[in-house]
Amino acid sequence: MHAATFLNLLQLASPALPVGAYSYSEGVETLVAQGHITHPETLLDWLTQELRSGSIRLDAAVLARAYRASCDRQWDALHTWNDWLSALRETEELRSQNWQMGRSLMRLFLDLEPAAAPQLPVDWQREPCNFAIAFAIVANHWQIPLPDALLAYLQSWATNLISAGVRLVPLGQTDGQRLLRAIAPTLIATTDEILTLTDEDLMACNWGLALASMGHETQYSRLFRS
């Protein structure tokens, strides 16, 4: 990878990217409050199951499709996948999160790359845009190869939830870093698998996430946004 592309990748996947990811726990806050996530092993198990059979796989698989659509300038396909992700969200909370983060990333991108605006369809800046779609558009524009973009997307998702766990359980900072090392093989394996999924394979087991996020919408005392 070129040094410039490598830096693009670091910037896009950085927890410092101002899209507000840190303010969401994607159900983890509820799971901690319910006593289901209590130590590093239970958080690792939750993340592993999400990657093996959960909703994050579908986000990643749609990211891959949006990336290819964006390469080929197939804006209709990009719209269809964006609608599909909006329709897929387990809860209003997760839908709002994705739209908010997607909108923030698109705005940031257009501020950083004003010359890219004319290359995108106009309505793209008005319609709700899911985060995975915005991520795909930026990754493609910054010439980050798809497998690297996918791996980085999953890694930044895991980093964010581990950091939520560190604050909520709470866990030590070193525990958090250890978890990130421990989840690495699953991130790599999931990335490889996502690249081979057909549209028929786009399915997930989302019962735990749906119920945790629905519970979070009414949770009395919260650190994280709904």
């Binding site: 939750w46 959960g54 735990g208």
Partner: peptide, 22 residues
């Protein structure tokens, strides 16, 4: 326009059966 999609996948295995995620 797609307004709701629910593609469920339940594998008959120990992880899906017992885990809080499943």
């Amino acid at each position: 326009r797609s307004v709701w999609v629910d593609p469920q996948w339940l594998l008959g295995d120990e992880r899906t059966w017992s885990g809080v995620h499943g």
